[in-house]
Structure formats: structure tokens, C-alpha cells
């Protein structure tokens, strides 16, 4: 294989891995934009989405790509419950409380999942496993292309929802000015629930796509991707979806470069080295305007 081929392949994997991060980061941005809330337990929703898809798949054998919608719907519900009973009561009591609350949620979801599904590693086989299609000089598994298509479709759907529907426009209004939104009669608490639920359903989509592509999973799968998604949105700027996409791709490249040059052990640490350097230079993130 020539060097150009290798390079293209690495870019392609960066795109594929980036899809998961982009969905997670977009969900986080959506929630943060509206509620100004951070949820460090966001990765647990990815894990729940993955397990819900896997469970339905094991029970019925339906094509897992179709289950993604069920899984997303389920997570809207779970997200709404978490928002209503955990985050709403502490809204406005300080950012630290949200961080501490997330730790409690991590304990509950990870170990609750382990109680229900055990903490053995599991896997789901895609019906398209083993099918590759030629793209230029490389052979790409069909699953990876499907994942990119699904991610793009979900993001387009989200874009249309935010720009064309009343609720979507109310969400954007709340995000721009919460008090103003209240003044014009928007029920901001309802908007909070909806955006939290939608953020969670994007995580569920990420979880589903991740396991369908042949990744094996266990209840602790969500933490690291979520933490990286946070690093990405800090780098890319809070609330900026293009920033999240560029940040996700850059992070993917930096990680793979570090694994290659410094050894695999540096793969996680490098994200944080970059994060710290960026924050030292610009305490508000690369593209962030005012931080929060």
C-alpha cells in the first residue's frame, strides 16, 4: 500500500471515530446552550443507548440500524426524568453542584447497568458485517459508511428541527436569552426538558452506531468518550456545532499521532495535554467567546 493510501485511510478512520464524538459533543452543546448546565455523566447515556439497542436486538433480531430510533426515543424519556428530578432542583445553585451531581449519576448508571446486564463485555453483529465497498484506492466496511450517513442525517434533522419547528425556535430563543424567552411567554422549563432529552437521544444514537460498527461494550464504556467530547467542546467553543466537528477531527488526528509517535499509552493523556495548553493560552477555549 502506498503512503497516500495509508494517509487516506487514517483520515477516514478519524472521520468515523469523529462521528461518535460529534454526536456526543452536539448533544452536550444543545443542553449547555439552553440550560447552561454541564453533565459529566453524559457518557452514561451513550452506554444506556447502546444497551437498549443491544437488548432489543438480542430479543427480536431486528436490524440494529432500525432500533436506533427506539433507543433514541427511550433516551429522550430517561433524559427527561433525569432533568426533571436531578438537574431542575439544583438549577441556579452553582456549577459545582452540577459536577457533583454528575458523579452520583455516574455511580448509579454504571452500576445499575452492571446489575441488569452484568459487566461482561458484549458485542452485536451488524447484518452487513464483512461487506466492504471500494472507495478510491481503499476498501471500506459498509458499516462505517452507514454510520457516517446516519450521523449526517441526524445532524441535518437536528438542524431542520431547530430552524423550522416552533419548539426548535423556542429552544434557540431560550439559548440566546433565557429571561427574554420567558418574557415572550416561552415555557422555559418545558424547553429545558426537551433539550436535555434530545441531547441524551443524540448520545443514544452515538452509542448505537458505536456498537453496531463492531465495537464491544460494557457498562463503563461511556466515560472516556464523554470526557473527550467535553475536551472537544471546550476546544471548539461552547455552543458551536462547527467548532465541535472541527475539534473532534483534530482530536482524532492528535490522538492517533501520539499513539504512533509516543506510544499507545499517551493516547488519552494527549487530549488533556492539548486541553491544558489551549486553556493556558486562552482560558475560554479556542473559539469560545466568553467561556460561560
Amino acid at each position: 500500500m502506498d503512503n497516500m493510501g495509508v494517509f487516506l485511510q487514517i483520515i477516514f478512520w478519524g472521520l468515523y471515530a469523529g462521528c461518535i464524538y460529534i454526536l456526543l459533543a452536539t448533544g452536550l452543546n444543545l443542553i449547555f446552550g439552553v440550560m447552561k448546565t454541564v453533565n459529566f455523566a453524559h457518557g452514561e447515556f451513550l452506554m444506556l443507548g447502546a444497551y437498549i439497542t443491544a437488548t432489543i436486538f438480542f430479543l427480536t433480531g431486528i436490524n440494529p440500524y432500525l432500533i436506533i430510533l427506539l433507543s433514541m426515543l427511550a433516551l429522550i424519556g430517561i433524559g427527561a426524568v433525569v432533568e426533571r428530578f436531578c438537574f431542575r432542583p439544583i438549577l441556579g445553585t452553582g456549577k459545582l453542584n452540577e459536577i457533583f451531581l454528575s458523579i452520583g449519576l455516574i455511580y448509579i448508571f454504571q452500576n445499575g447497568a452492571a446489575m441488569i446486564w452484568t459487566d461482561e463485555w458484549q458485542s452485536v453483529k451488524s447484518p452487513y458485517d464483512g461487506i466492504t465497498i471500494p472507495v478510491g484506492s481503499l476498501f471500506v466496511p459498509l458499516d462505517y459508511i452507514l454510520i457516517m450517513v446516519f450521523t449526517a442525517a441526524i445532524l441535518c434533522g437536528l438542524y431542520l428541527f431547530l430552524n423550522r419547528t416552533t419548539i426548535g425556535m423556542q429552544m434557540r430563543a431560550t439559548s440566546q436569552n433565557r429571561k427574554g424567552a420567558m418574557l415572550v411567554g416561552i415555557n422555559v422549563e418545558r424547553i429545558d426538558i426537551i433539550s436535555f432529552g434530545m441531547g441524551c437521544s443524540l448520545a443514544a444514537a452515538a452509542g448505537t452506531l458505536w456498537i453496531v460498527s463492531g465495537q464491544i461494550f460494557n457498562p463503563y464504556m461511556g466515560s472516556i468518550p464523554a470526557i473527550k467530547a467535553f475536551a472537544i467542546i471546550i476546544l471548539g467553543g461552547l455552543g458551536s456545532i462547527p467548532g465541535a466537528i472541527i475539534g473532534g477531527l483534530l482530536m482524532g488526528l492528535a490522538e492517533n499521532g501520539a499513539a504512533f509517535l509516543l506510544g499507545g499509552i499517551w493516547k488519552d493523556a494527549i487530549s488533556f495535554v492539548i486541553l491544558i495548553i489551549v486553556l493556558v493560552v486562552r482560558p475560554t477555549g479556542l473559539f469560545g467567546e466568553k467561556g460561560e
Binding site: V6, Q9, A17, A259, F260, G264, I265, K267
Partner: peptide, 20 residues
């Protein structure tokens, strides 16, 4: 001789280096 971090899920970079 390539290494990876415990719990890693993406090994493509190391495998590409090995293949080379």
C-alpha cells in the same frame, strides 16, 4: 513492538505501523 493503553478500543494506528 507497539503498545496501547488498557481498555483501548481503536488499534488502527498501531496496526498500520505494524503492517508497514
Amino acid at each position: 513492538q507497539q503498545s496501547f493503553r488498557m481498555g483501548e478500543s481503536d488499534f488502527r494506528t498501531q496496526l498500520t505501523a505494524i503492517k508497514a
